[in-house]
Design a protein around this nucleic acid. Structure first.
Length: 602
DNA sequence: GCCGTTTTCGGCCCGACTGTTTTCAGTCG
C-alpha cells in the first residue's frame, strides 16, 4: 500500500491555477503559452468526471486532455509526497497571501501581487481576505497608484459577495429564477426572443451564474430594461451588448443581446461549454474559419469577411457538422461524432411511458419517509402525464420494528391493494375513460444492508413484481467492499433496478465509491438496470456515469422518486441527465410499451 | 506545457467591460 496524499480535483485545479498565476508574474511574455497550458489543465481537472487521485492510482493522469508528461510528473510527486519541488520553485519569492486575494472576483494575479507588496505588513497569509477588507474600509486602497475610489468599492462588494455566496444552484431552482427574468424581459416589446444560456441550457445538474440571451430591436432599451429588474440588488456592469446584475444571495445574472440576424452565433457562443467552444474553434481554424460570437470569419482574397449567422443549425452546418444538442456540448467526443454524422438520437421527454420510482402514502411502516399522496391520486396524475404504467416503490417495512411474519403480512396487504387497483383500472377502461394508466406494478425500494443482504424475507419478495435496491446507510465503505455489497444485493432474483446508484446528494454528500466497470458488466450479464433518479437533489446516476453505462450497453430506468403527486413532474430533469449521458430511447427501459416491459420482467 | 483531419514541430480561441488612463492593462467568461 502506497503512502499517499489526498487532493480533491478542486484543490489540484487551484494549485495549477496558482502556478499559471505565478508564471504570469514571472516573465509572462516568455511563458505566454505555458500559462495557457496550466490554465487549461486547471480547467480540465476541475471539470473532470473522474477523481484525479483515482486516475493517478491507475497511472492514467495523461488521459485528461491538457495534462501531458510534464504536469503529470509534478502531480505524481504531489500525490506521492504531498508537495512538488517544481511548483515550489515557480512560486518562490511570491507572497502566499496573493493566492488568497485572487479568490476575490476582479482581483487577478497582477492586482493581488501589487496589493500584497504595497501592504506587506497589513495583509497576513492566514487572514488575507479579512485584512484586505479592513484596508478597503479604511480607504487606504484608493490612494494606491492604479487604484481609485471605484476599484476600492468593487473590492468591498466582491468580498461581501463571496462571503454570502451560496453553493451552486440545483437545476430546477436555477430554471425558476431564469424564467422569472425571461418573463420580465418579455414585458419589453423590443425583445424578439430570449433563451437561457450556459450550463442552464446544457441542463447541467448544478448551475453557477445564470446567463440569458435576447435578440432585440433596440439594444440600449433592452439592456436598460434588464438593469431595472426589480429583484436586482446591484448592477455589476452595463455595456452596449452585455449587462450583469446581482440577485439577493449574491447570484449573478448575465444578459447578452444581439440582432436577430446574428443571434445564432451568440446563442452558440454563450451556451458553451468553454471546452466545447475551444475545441470547435480550433477545428474551424484548421479549416480556414474563425468563429466568434458575432459570426464566422471567412478568408476571401486575404481579407477576413464576417458572415452573420442567424441560427445555431446554420452555425454548425457552416463548419461542416450536424447541429449538436446543448446537453452534449462538453467536448466529450460530440464534435467528432457530429463530423461523422454519428450523433446519438437522444431520448426525449415524450418517449417516457412510465415512472418507475414512486412512493405513495400507503403505510408500509417503513423507517424511511412515506409518500404524501394516495395511490389513487398518483394514478390520476400519472394518467395526465400520459404514462402507460407506473410502479409503487415504497421503502421496505422497517426491519427493527417488525419480525419476518409482520413484514410479509404488510407486503401481502399491499399486494392485495395493488391488485384491486389494477382490477378497477380494467373496469375503468371498459368504460373507456381516457388518460388512464393501464397497469400499476407492485414494487418496493429496498435498503441494501452493509453486508449486501436485503431486509425482506423470501415470502415478502414473492409478493413483488420486481424490486429496486438502494444504499441508505454505510456510505463510506471502501470501493471493494461497496462493490461486493451492491453485487450481492443485485443477485436477488427480484432485484431489477439499482436505484440512485451513487447515493449522492447535490451540495450535501459525495457519492459512494464503486467499481463501475464491474457493476456495468454485472448488469449487462444479468439483465439488471441502473436508475437515473430524477429528484433534483440527486440526479443519480450522474450524467458522466450514464455516458459510461450506455457505452457499455447497460440499460437505464428513469424514476422521479416522487413522494407526492406534484413531484411526478420532475421526470424532465431525469431526461436531461440521460440526454447529457448520450442516452437514446433504446437505452431507457421505461420508453418500452407495457407489453415489452412485462416481457423484460420475465 | 500541450498536442495532432496542414502531426513530432510550431502553432496555441475570441472578445467584452471597467477603471484609470489618455491608449491600455487587467480580468473574466
Amino acid at each position: 500500500m502506497k503512502n499517499t496524499k489526498n487532493f480533491t480535483n478542486l484543490e489540484i485545479a487551484e494549485i495549477l491555477r496558482d502556478i499559471a498565476a505565478a508564471y504570469q508574474l514571472k516573465n509572462s511574455a516568455k511563458n505566454k503559452f505555458r500559462i495557457i497550458a496550466y490554465e487549461r489543465a486547471a480547467d480540465a481537472v476541475e471539470h473532470s468526471s473522474n477523481e484525479l487521485k483515482d486516475l493517478w492510482d491507475e497511472g492514467k493522469l495523461v488521459d485528461i486532455p491538457g495534462i501531458g508528461s510534464s504536469i503529470s510528473q509534478h502531480l505524481d510527486e504531489l500525490f506521492r509526497t504531498g508537495r512538488s519541488k517544481h511548483f515550489e520553485e515557480v512560486t518562490k519569492g511570491l507572497p502566499p497571501a496573493m493566492f488568497e486575494l485572487m479568490k476575490v472576483p476582479g482581483i487577478g494575479p497582477k492586482t493581488a501581487y501589487k496589493l500584497v507588496k504595497k501592504f506587506k505588513s497589513e495583509i497576513s497569509e492566514k487572514n488575507a481576505l479579512a485584512d484586505l477588507e479592513k484596508l478597503a474600509r479604511e480607504e487606504k486602497i484608493e490612494k494606491l497608484e492604479g487604484f481609485g475610489e471605484e476599484s476600492q468599492k468593487d473590492i468591498l462588494k466582491s468580498i461581501k459577495e463571496i462571503k454570502g455566496r451560496t453553493v451552486r444552484l440545483i437545476l430546477p431552482y436555477a430554471y425558476a429564477l431564469a424564467e422569472e427574468i425571461i418573463a420580465w424581459l418579455k414585458q419589453n416589446k423590443l425583445v424578439v426572443r430570449t433563451d437561457p444560456l450556459g450550463s442552464l441550457r446544457r441542463k447541467a445538474s448544478t448551475i453557477g451564474d445564470i446567463d440569458i440571451a435576447a435578440s432585440f430591436k433596440n439594444p440600449v432599451e433592452v439592456i436598460n430594461h434588464f438593469a431595472k429588474y426589480p429583484k436586482a440588488v446591484r448592477i455589476l456592469e452595463k455595456g452596449e451588448r452585455t449587462a450583469s446584475i446581482i440577485l439577493p444571495g449574491g447570484r449573478q445574472v448575465d444578459l447578452m443581446v444581439e440582432t436577430p440576424d446574428a443571434y445564432g452565433a451568440l446563442l452558440q457562443h454563450f451556451t458553451g461549454s468553454k471546452h466545447h467552444n475551444i475545441a470547435l474553434r480550433e477545428y474551424a481554424l484548421k479549416h480556414g474559419l474563425s468563429l466568434s460570437d458575432y459570426g464566422i470569419y471567412v478568408k476571401k482574397h486575404g481579407k477576413k469577411i464576417l458572415k452573420k449567422i442567424a441560427t445555431e443549425e446554420e452555425f454548425y452546418n457552416f463548419i461542416g457538422m450536424e447541429w449538436i444538442p446543448p446537453e452534449l456540448r462538453e467536448d466529450n467526443g460530440e464534435i467528432e461524432a457530429a463530423l461523422r454524422h454519428e450523433l446519438p438520437e437522444l431520448v426525449n421527454y415524450h418517449d417516457i411511458k412510465a415512472d418507475l420510482q414512486i412512493h405513495s402514502s400507503f403505510d408500509v411502516e417503513t423507517s424511511h419517509d412515506l409518500g404524501e399522496s394516495s395511490m389513487e391520486e398518483i394514478i390520476e396524475e400519472s394518467g395526465k402525464l400520459g404514462y402507460e404504467y407506473i410502479a409503487f416503490t415504497e421503502h421496505n417495512p422497517s426491519k427493527s420494528k417488525h419480525n419476518e411474519k409482520q413484514i410479509i403480512d404488510i407486503l401481502k396487504r399491499k399486494r392485495e391493494i395493488v391488485d384491486k387497483l389494477n382490477y378497477s383500472i380494467l373496469t375503468a377502461f371498459a368504460r373507456s375513460e381516457l388518460h388512464r394508466v393501464k397497469e400499476v406494478f407492485n414494487s418496493l425500494e429496498i435498503d441494501i444492508m452493509p453486508d449486501g443482504s436485503l431486509p425482506v424475507p423470501e415470502a415478502g419478495m414473492e409478493t413483488l413484481d420486481f424490486a429496486l435496491v438502494s444504499i441508505h446507510s454505510s456510505f463510506r465503505l471502501d470501493r471493494k467492499k461497496m462493490t461486493k455489497r451492491v453485487l450481492k444485493a443485485l443477485s436477488y432474483p427480484k432485484a431489477k433496478i439499482f436505484a440512485h446508484p451513487t447515493a449522492r446528494k447535490l451540495n450535501e454528500r459525495e457519492g459512494v465509491e464503486l467499481d463501475w466497470p464491474e457493476i456495468f458488466d454485472y448488469c449487462v450479464d444479468n439483465n439488471k438496470w441502473l436508475e437515473v433518479n430524477a429528484d433534483p437533489m440527486r440526479l443519480d446516476l450522474p450524467d458522466f456515469l450514464v455516458h459510461e453505462a450506455v457505452k457499455n450497453d447497460v440499460k437505464i430506468t428513469l424514476g422521479t422518486d416522487a413522494h407526492n403527486s406534484q413531484c411526478l413532474n420532475n421526470m424532465s430533469y431525469g431526461v436531461s441527465v440521460a440526454r447529457r449521458g448520450w442516452a437514446e430511447k433504446k437505452d431507457i427501459i421505461n420508453t418500452r410499451s407495457l407489453k415489452e416491459f412485462e416481457n423484460m420482467l420475465r
